[in-house]
Design a protein around this nucleic acid. Structure first.
Lengths: 148, 148
DNA sequence: TCAATATTTGGAATAATTCTAAGTCTCATT
DNA sequence: AATGAGACTTAGAATTATTCCAAATATTGA
C-alpha cells in the first residue's frame, strides 16, 4: 500500500477538476500524486524530474499546464518566496511559509490559538527576520466591472 | 520644490547604506528617488525606464545592483506576487499587498486596530479571494551554524 | 461511434535575472 | 594632492524561468 490513497485522491481530483471545467487526465493525476508524495515545496523543474520517473514521456509544458490546472481548481497553492522559481505546495490547510535565507529550505508553519508568534506555531530555534502578507482578489474597479 | 525632500532623503540613504557596508553613489540615490517618486510597485524594467529619464546612461545591471543594495539596507521591500517579475516598494511601514487578479494592480493595505478584515484596512469594494503569509529568516540548523 | 474541443508534446520564443570583464569611482591613507 | 585597494558601473553575453505554437492525441458528451 502506497503512502497516498489513490482511489480517494482520484475522486477528489476528478471532482475538483470537473467543477472548474478541466478534464481528468493521467498527467494531471500523476503530477498531483508527485506533489502529494513529497511535500517539500518543489519547483516546476523538480516536479518535472520526479514526474518523469513514473511517466517518462511527460513534457515540461504539460507540467506547467497541470500545475496551473491544480492551482486553479484549488488543490495546490503556488508559493513565490524570492526572485527564484515558483514553488508548489499541496497543503491547503490554513498555514504560511517559512523561507530559510541560508539554505533556501521552505517549511510550513501552522496557525494555532496558542502559537508562540502571534498565533504562528514557529518551531523552536527558527529565527524570523521578516514577514510578508499578500492578498489576491479583485480591486474595486475590476470587481464592479465583473458584476456587469 | 520637488515632491521629495532630497537633503533629508540623502542623509537617510547615506546612513543606511553606510551601516550595511555599501557606498553612497549617484545611481543608488537616483534609483531610490525614482522609487519614492511614484509608489506604484514598479518592476525592475519599469524602474530602469524611469531612471533613464534623469540618468540616461544608467544600465540595467546597475538598477539590479541598486535595488539589491536598497533592499539589503532596509529602505525598500521586494514583493513577489505571482510568476511575473519582482516588484519593489519603498513603503517600510508595516503593511501588506493586495494584488488584483484582473488588472494586475498592486495596492498597499495598512494594518489597523479597527480594520474591517481581521485588522486589515481593506478599501471598500475590494474582494479578497486568497491570502498568503510568508516568513523569512533562518531555520534551526542554519541558525545554530551561524552562532558558531 | 463520432464530432467537438481540451490536452499533450517538443521545440522555439520570450522574459527575467545573473554573470563577466574591463573601466571608473570612492575612500582611507599617505 | 597622490596612491592603492576594493567597490561600483557598464554593456553584453549567458543562464534560467516561463510562455507560446502548431500538430498529434485524448477525453467527453451526444
Amino acid at each position: 500500500m502506497s503512502s497516498v490513497d489513490h482511489s480517494k485522491m482520484d475522486n477528489r481530483l476528478n471532482e475538483r477538476l470537473a467543477t472548474s471545467g478541466f478534464r481528468f487526465t493521467p498527467q494531471r493525476q500523476h503530477v498531483y500524486s508527485v506533489l502529494l508524495g513529497k511535500r517539500d515545496h518543489p519547483t516546476v523543474e523538480e516536479v518535472f524530474m520526479r514526474s518523469k520517473q513514473g511517466m517518462p514521456d511527460i513534457s515540461m509544458a504539460t507540467v506547467y499546464n497541470c500545475l496551473d490546472a491544480l492551482v486553479k481548481c484549488g488543490l495546490v497553492r503556488h508559493v513565490n518566496l524570492d526572485r527564484a522559481a515558483t514553488r508548489y505546495c499541496p497543503n491547503m490547510k490554513e498555514h504560511c511559509h517559512f523561507y530559510c535565507e541560508e539554505c533556501g529550505g521552505v517549511y510550513d508553519i501552522d496557525f494555532m490559538a496558542e502559537g508562540n508568534h502571534h498565533g504562528l506555531n514557529v518551531p523552536e530555534g527558527f529565527q524570523i527576520k521578516q514577514y510578508d502578507i499578500s492578498l489576491r482578489g479583485l480591486c474595486r474597479d475590476c470587481a464592479s466591472k465583473a458584476i456587469k
